[in-house]
Computed example of a mutant assay.
Amino acid sequence: MTRLENRLAGSLSDLRARFNRRIGFSENAWPRPTWPEEPQEALDRGSLDSLLASGVRRSVRRSILDSVAGTIKAELRAPTGIGWYGQHEAHWVAHYDAHRRIGVHFGHEVERQLDLWAETVRSCGWWWPRDDVCVLTERPVVVRTEPVPGSEYGEVRAHAADGPAIAYPDGWRAYAWHGTPVPAWVIEDVTAEAINTERNVEIRRCAVERLGWDGYIERAGLTFVARAPDPGNGDAELLLYDVPRAPGTIARRLLLTVNGSVERDGTRRRYGLSVPPWFDDPVDAAGWSYGLTGAQYTGLLRRT
């Protein structure tokens, strides 16, 4: 880390600490703050701070830093060194600015520094200051998102089903499927062969969802073996398929099941489990995935 980076990182850390002391905020917890005596008696101050922490800081962080910046970071092939996220740091700038707007006074010098950081948020993307040069990036020209199901404060996540979720003026792109960063082929050229050779479980799940389970089963040439009601999982079914054996791979079967837990949007996700080829009974295969026998699995009152 260069001297300039050290100075800037230390200055920012000190600035945020001064803000946090003033409003009684902790980076690792969300307590009710010690509020200054301002003419806000008509407001429930504890509720107001909770609203600012959840509705501004956390929701903006999840939408902009965790989702959008996270998608960009996942696509990078090499470490970029210490830097700052520009517009993707809007969550903490907005949080302190919201307190200022409702009457909390931080002092002239502290607020002047906040204005400088707010200007970088409005003006640029990621940037890297060095002792002899400063590298700044443009902001993306394409950012495609979708609402996060069940979000109380309108959070969004990166998602595009027909192209890049994020694109820059020079043509650099990043892809996301319902908030999960994925390689370009998942969106633009998904095939059963690519799915079968993908080692990352999350990417494989997204690719199957992109293609659809029915489409994947057909294109992968899976052979239906058996079906059975899923004990402890309402009216869901267990479906067992034989998977064609590719050269150099071990024989296996696929158990298609339904998640016992409900997603935030009220649906239940379908997912596939790789199971040994000797299972002919879907219930036995499901029990094996939990380390149980089929009879033990059948006795479950409810699974998650």
Rank of each mutant, 00 (worst) to 15 (best):
E188N: 08
R199M: 10
D214W: 00
R219V: 13
G232V: 08
V225Y: 05
G248P: 09
A194M: 07
G215I: 12
T197C: 15
I203T: 09
E188C: 11
T223A: 07
E193T: 08
L254Q: 15
N196C: 10
I187D: 02
C206F: 02
A246I: 08
A194W: 04
A220N: 12
V225N: 06
W213K: 03
R204F: 07
G212V: 00
E202R: 06
R210T: 13
V201Q: 14
D189A: 09
L254S: 12
G215K: 03
V186C: 03
P229L: 02
P247M: 15
E188W: 11
E193G: 14
A246Q: 13
V243K: 15
A207R: 01
V201C: 07
P231M: 05
L238R: 04
Y216R: 02
G248W: 12
A236P: 00
E198V: 13
D235L: 06
E218I: 08
R205T: 10
E237S: 15
I250W: 14
V190E: 01
T191M: 08
D230T: 05
G221M: 14
C206Q: 05
R227F: 15
V186I: 05
C206R: 04
G232Q: 08
P229R: 00
A207N: 04
P183E: 01
E218K: 06
L240T: 14
P231R: 01
R205Q: 05
I187Y: 00
P247V: 10
L222Y: 09
Y241C: 09
E237W: 11
V225Q: 04
R227C: 10
I195L: 01
I203G: 11
I203M: 11
R219T: 13
E193Q: 11
E188K: 05
P247K: 07
D230G: 04
G232T: 04
L239K: 08
N196Q: 15
A236Q: 00
D230N: 07
R252W: 10
L222C: 10
A236I: 00
N233A: 11
Y241P: 12
G248L: 13
L238T: 06
D242Q: 15
D242T: 14
R204V: 06
L222G: 13
R252M: 12
N200V: 06
P244W: 02
R210K: 12
V186A: 03
R219S: 15
E237G: 09
E209D: 06
A207H: 03
L238D: 07
R245S: 11
L238H: 05
V225H: 07
P229N: 02
G212K: 00
L239M: 14
A207W: 03
G248E: 11
I250Y: 06
R245L: 13
G212W: 00
I195H: 00
V190A: 06
V186W: 03
T223E: 10
I250D: 09
A251S: 07
E198Y: 12
A228N: 04
L211C: 12
E218G: 11
E209G: 02
P183K: 00
T223K: 13
A194H: 06
A194P: 03
N196G: 06
D189H: 15
N196V: 07
I250N: 11
A184Q: 06
T191N: 13
I217K: 01
R252H: 14
L256C: 05
P247Q: 12
D230Q: 04
I195Y: 00
P229S: 02
P229I: 02
L254T: 08
A228C: 13
D214F: 01
